[in-house]
Simulated assay, not measured.
Amino acid sequence: MQSEGKVAGVPTFLYGAAHQEGRSLDSIRRELGYFRPNASENQWIGGTELETLQLKPDEGPAQATRGKGIITIGATRWVDNYNIPVFTNDISIVRKIAKRVSGRGGGLPSVQSMALTHGGGTIEVACNLLEPSRIGGDQVQPEVERLAREEGIAVGKGYYTDLSEEKIIESYLKLIQHSD
């Protein structure tokens, strides 16, 4: 059976349990340049600008086209996304805060974070909470507040970008109970 990447002619990258070595999604994004600053100095450009990919895809061609992009397919444990608005236009300060709050930067374990510009004097610390039952938004929020205070910057109340795992399960259970 052919994979979707071969059929569609799109470079396809696997991550997590779908990848033989358990490669992480953020490692794919880093290698493809997703986290490099764009012309307006936003940290996340949202995609590769390269036609010839620096990373060999697991399936499909080694070239990406702007019209088709790339595909990432993975299987991981539940991840919560929690974003905290920081009231500044200084992306370098928010990048510093994001790095310091992340496990990779010596901060909270199982937290990945980056600075996302939204305009209007707000830049968010966007976090992937890889083990939300261990480290949740309730731990990330005060840490970002503390780091922002050190920089003399105010922050707003963070928010989850989607429903929590518990809320999705609860909604599903309600749905199947009503369908009986």
Rank of each mutant, 00 (worst) to 15 (best):
Q2K: 13
E4K: 05
G9K: 11
A18I: 02
A18Y: 14
A18P: 07
Q20H: 08
R23Y: 07
S24I: 02
D26N: 11
S27M: 05
I28M: 08
R30S: 07
G33M: 10
Y34N: 10
Y34D: 09
R36Y: 07
R36A: 12
P37R: 14
P37T: 04
N42D: 15
T48A: 00
E49H: 09
L50R: 15
T52M: 02
T52N: 01
P57L: 01
P57N: 00
D58M: 06
E59G: 01
G60H: 11
P61F: 10
Q63C: 08
Q63N: 09
A64D: 02
T65W: 08
G67A: 04
K68T: 00
G69H: 07
I71F: 14
T72L: 15
I73P: 00
G74L: 06
W78S: 11
V79I: 13
N81C: 04
N81M: 10
N81E: 13
N83Q: 12
N83M: 07
N83G: 05
N83H: 15
P85H: 03
P85E: 08
V86T: 01
V86K: 05
N89E: 14
D90F: 00
I93L: 14
V94D: 02
R95M: 04
K96A: 00
K96Y: 00
A98T: 00
A98L: 05
R100N: 11
R100K: 13
V101Y: 11
G103N: 11
G107Y: 08
P109M: 13
S110N: 14
V111R: 09
Q112S: 12
M114E: 06
A115P: 02
L116V: 05
L116P: 00
G121T: 04
E124C: 05
V125G: 01
A126K: 07
C127A: 14
L129E: 07
L129S: 07
L129K: 04
E131N: 08
E131V: 10
S133V: 13
S133A: 15
D138M: 07
D138G: 08
Q141W: 11
Q141Y: 07
P142T: 13
E143A: 10
V144W: 15
E145N: 13
A148C: 01
E150W: 00
I153P: 02
I153G: 03
A154P: 04
A154D: 15
V155F: 12
V155R: 12
G158D: 13
T161W: 03
E165R: 15
I168F: 05
I168W: 07
I169M: 08
E170C: 07
L173P: 03
L173V: 15
K174Q: 12
L175M: 14
Q177C: 03
H178R: 10
S179Q: 14
S179P: 02
